[in-house]
């Protein structure tokens, strides 16, 4: 029973980290209509910056640099490339982001090489014991930070001018600009937010129990795509629900792999999110919490 509980808690915590990434997808998509295939590289970039800087400037300053770096890269991608597309539409933008992802990921991979960089997180490999359930401190911390991050997002989007303006711009850009809301500014804010969320996720995805910063971390962003999609393309709460669902599914399928293998084959944990996504899309083509009219591609 405690094994099951451990899997569930691990899954929830992993799911929350995924939902940070998924929320980044949703925010970028609603604020600029871009399917950000380079999001995984930004996740990696945030973690990479922390890993190379923590020795010289200390862990917490390095975290700040990591978050800022990821935000700046996101804003720059939007300002320099997305806004200058020769033929701006969701399709070309998505493929542009594939190009950006290839460049970023290749360069980061080259810099990291064959090593696994350590993050230098102060919580290290410590664990937290709750009764007979043992959880890595990093996972518990991740859950806490994620909850705080989503609280901050909620405050931003419902209690501040900027956030309400961003929602207005996402709902109907041309009309929002008639209110004096500058779409370039809301777009930049969206990309910056997504970058920050990605870097936070990157830090937790590369600290214990993960071995450290390696290029494969970028792939975890792909696992967040099903979370984003099944939550609904334009919904941050949807991203949370989707992330939790995918996190739980992955953790349980992986945790009980031995029992499931005869039916599902080995390594089903990697595929399960996509199977869940396809099934959800079939039943609800606009995701669990997505609005029907929000996307006209």
């Amino acid at each position: 029973m405690s094994y099951f509980l451990e899997q569930v808690l691990n899954g929830l915590s992993y799911g929350l980290v995924l939902s940070l990434i998924a929320a980044g997808f949703a925010i970028v998509f609603t604020s600029t209509g871009v399917l950000n295939f380079a999001h995984g590289s930004v996740v990696l970039l945030g973690a990479y910056l922390v890993a190379v800087l923590h020795d010289t400037i200390g862990f917490w300053p390095a975290v700040l640099v990591g978050l800022a770096g990821a935000a700046v890269v996101g804003v720059a991608i939007n300002a320099l490339l997305v806004r200058n597309l020769a033929d701006p539409n969701p399709g070309t933008a998505a493929i542009l982001m594939l190009g950006v992802d290839i460049v970023l990921l290749t360069e980061l991979t080259r810099r990291i090489g064959n090593q696994v960089l350590t993050l230098g997180a102060p919580w290290g490999a410590s664990v937290v014991r709750l009764g007979d359930v043992t959880l890595p401190t990093g996972r518990v911390l991740a859950a806490g930070v994620t909850v705080v991050a989503f609280g901050a997002l909620w405050y931003l989007f419902s209690r501040t001018d900027l956030g309400v303006g961003m929602r207005a711009a996402a709902a109907d850009g041309p009309t929002a600009s008639l209110m004096g809301i500058r779409l370039s500014r809301t777009a930049a804010t969206g990309w910056a937010l997504a970058g920050i969320l990605a870097a936070v996720a990157g830090i937790f995805l590369t600290s214990f129990p993960a071995p450290g910063v390696a290029p494969t971390v970028a792939l975890s962003a792909f696992a967040a795509i099903p979370a984003w999609v099944l939550g609904g393309f334009d919904s941050v709460p949807g991203a949370v629900v989707g992330g939790l669902l995918i996190g739980l599914t992955s953790a349980l399928v992986t945790g009980y792999e031995a029992e499931l293998e005869p039916f599902l084959g080995s390594g089903f944990g990697e595929v399960a999110p996509y199977v869940v996504m396809i099934v959800v899309l079939l039943v609800r083509p606009s995701g669990l919490l997505g609005s029907k009219e929000a996307v006209r591609v």
Binding site: L35, P90, G91, A94, I225, P226, V229, F233, G265, G267, F268, E270, V271, Y274, V275, M277, I278, L281, P285, S286, V295, R296, V297
Partner: peptide
């Protein structure tokens, strides 16, 4: 499905076939 939804559903296909 349409547009990006379709694209992402087909993305799932790659992983399923690989599995």
């Amino acid at each position: 499905l349409r547009g990006i939804y379709l694209g992402l559903a087909t993305l799932g296909l790659v992983f399923v076939v690989r599995h």
